[in-house]
Design a protein around this nucleic acid. Structure first.
Lengths: 327, 327
DNA sequence: CTGAAAGCGCTTACAG
DNA sequence: CTGAAAGCGCTTACAG
């Protein structure tokens, strides 16, 4: 392995000069610069990041803390984070937290020992001390908010308005809203959006809370559909719930979209594979990840960030679970 | 930050003794051990992994190189890798390669500079020099094989036999096999299994090659079904292809499973959400990841590994795209 | 069994 | 503009 010492010797300067040149810190004469460049080239020298970290107490590692990569929302997010991290020379460490504060705390602590540069986190524990006092750059995704931590999130409320209106415009007169877990900010924003839109109309509606799980949603919807056969539209606050609703419709014998229309929220790949394809309010998950990473890197590099809240637009994707709008 | 020096001072011994004690290397008297333990406790000392790495040229980072975390096969794998890595005190770095040799090479090189402990990789480039000469522990997943690198893989061939027989036992007389990309080992093993099983029967069959993509598979199957209406069974070598086939069946107006039965391969979560639910040969992806990680860590810790090939069993999951077997 | 010392490969005041 | 030297926090022969 060739070290900075070898380069210094070959270039006929001191290691201090080489270091200054490499880091573009402090003065280096044109001659010295040329000699060092040549030596680096010739020796194919590459700086040892571990040695550097030990000095600077900074690495180019970024920690990505999320509940569970297995949840269909997160792979695309992880992909985006990694893509832009790579662009800026950072490497990403994957941390599945299971929403468990202990695990989160552990990750933060062990990674801080490695001089991690910063974290991107999806968590509901953002005001827990291990975040509040982490003393390291953090950007939050989606979920919770803490005044010190920038957040990037979808425009959930507006998305819900759009989704609700999609149903209304297509003739629904009795809409079932599948509300997500109440401890989730995005789920609440979607609820607010639904309420806002439905109240502007004179349609009937009902709200049912259920987790973002397939089987649960299926059961809840079967029940609701049996209790109330006049339901002619379902707006689910996640695609997985929507898939459950679609399945329930099938087992109950309701025709989608002729007899019952369904709109989901998320835009995961699976939606396309269902029959009929799922109409949904798609989040731009990749973009959320990319924005979050850029904001984080700005923080890391001590550039000022303009805002503490970034909202990523959402988009209605029409597929087979809704009819064409009657004009 | 408290360092080994602080501990040494408090314990009244040298840093060398503290280090030996902490690493359980070399002799340390009972008295010294006790004093050090007490000091560590009192000072809440935690070893600095960066400083250690600089000396030992070893970190506790594991690199996970895979084509794309966004592909539904990989999140569960990543989860498994991380879970067992955590258990053994390792941290995982996520590397999306897009099957691009340049990206793989880059990751290997930049991570080696960080003294990465080892890699788990899913790639077709395993005999490329950047792997062959990586000079770092590697375990391969699924895909390709290189004599020096241990592989863990599903029992693909047997799985294909099981899947084919599932169709045959349920009365299929003309089976369409959706073969995956020919450059993929697992896809070929599945093909071999299909051929073996189908030849034992007197059923008709045909084989069509198509990538593991939804839209492509849908198109290919639509065509095949139109050309040959007597097809009464489809065995897809991936769940995504199977989803495409199911959709195609719908648009062509074939009834599944009464008129046409479908079996997939993989066992991804989406299979359950389709209507009807997808019968599939499920891989135990989590187990594959867990096994691979354990094998890797054994290598890292210089324990001998018993085999160079680990096969994880596969399991038939019966859902709605197949009928009940007529006895 | 133990400690002084060199070394891992860098960075960074400081003096010149 | 430049170099000698100390230091980041550990590990590891080596001598005792």
């Amino acid at each position: 392995m060739t070290t900075i010492k070898d380069v210094a010797k070959k270039a006929g300067v001191s290691v201090a000069t080489v270091s200054r040149f490499l880091n573009d810190s402090g003065y280096v004469s044109a001659d010295a610069a040329k000699a060092v460049t040549a030596a680096v080239d010739e020796l194919k020298y590459e700086l040892n990041p571990v040695a550097r970290s030990l000095n600077t107490k900074k690495s180019n590692l970024i920690g990505l803390i999320l509940p569970d990569i297995t949840n269909p929302f997160f792979p695309e997010l992880a992909r985006a984070v990694e893509d832009v991290a790579l662009t800026y020379g950072y490497t990403v460490v994957l941390c599945n937290s299971d929403e468990n504060p202990e695990k989160e705390k552990n990750y933060i602590e062990t990674l801080k020992k490695k001089y991690i540069a910063g974290f991107i986190v999806t968590s509901n524990q953002l005001d827990a001390p291990h975040y509040a006092n982490a003393n390291v750059p953090i950007v939050a995704l989606d979920r919770a908010i803490n005044d010190k931590i920038p957040v990037v999130s979808s425009n959930n409320k507006e998305g819900a308005v759009i989704g609700t209106n999609a149903l209304l415009e297509r003739g629904c007169r009795n809409v079932l809203f599948l509300r997500g877990p109440e401890e989730l900010n995005p789920a609440n924003d979607r609820y607010d959006g639904f309420m806002e839109a439905i109240r502007q109309s004179d349609a009937d509606y009902q709200v049912v809370t259920c987790p973002f799980h397939f089987a649960d949603s299926q059961k809840v919807v079967e029940q609701a559909l049996q209790d109330n056969p006049s339901i002619d539209g379902i707006f689910a606050s996640s695609d997985v719930s929507a898939a459950g609703a679609l399945k329930a419709a099938g087992t109950i014998g309701r025709q989608v979209p002729d007899d019952l229309q369904i709109v989901g929220f998320d835009g995961v790949a699976m939606g396309e594979m269902l029959s009929p394809g799922l109409t949904t309010v798609a989040q731009d998950v990749y973009k959320m990840g990319a924005v979050a990473t850029r904001v984080l890197i700005k923080q890391i590099e001590n550039k000022k960030i303009e805002q503490s809240f970034y909202e990523v637009p959402v988009k209605l994707v029409i597929r087979g679970t809704t009819r064409s709008v009657a004009e």
